[in-house]
Amino acid sequence: MLYIKCPYCGLRAQKEFSYGGDATVKRPNINEEVSSEDWDNFVYMRKSPRGKHTELWQHIAGCRQWIKVQRDTATHEIFQTAKVTEEIR
């Protein structure tokens, strides 16, 4: 079970969180034209990297905040966590 540092609550067990996918995907702006290629990339296309990956998790059984977690997908090592408004360096 992973040990995830919520930027609001501190270190908590994985079972308090739910996974939310790639954090680097940005939704096209609302009310703006978007090419179908860009839209498809946003909806469907995801990388599946082996190694460092910045992902979203939600602290559902805690503060309910969505957070960023930079994690190694092979070893599960967590390098950094941050609020969604912060940058992962």
């Binding site: 939704r27 939600q58 559902i60 969505w66």
Partner: peptide, 10 residues
Amino acid sequence: SHLEYYLQIV
């Protein structure tokens, strides 16, 4: 969770 996602992130 869906609503929170859009309010917090998007």
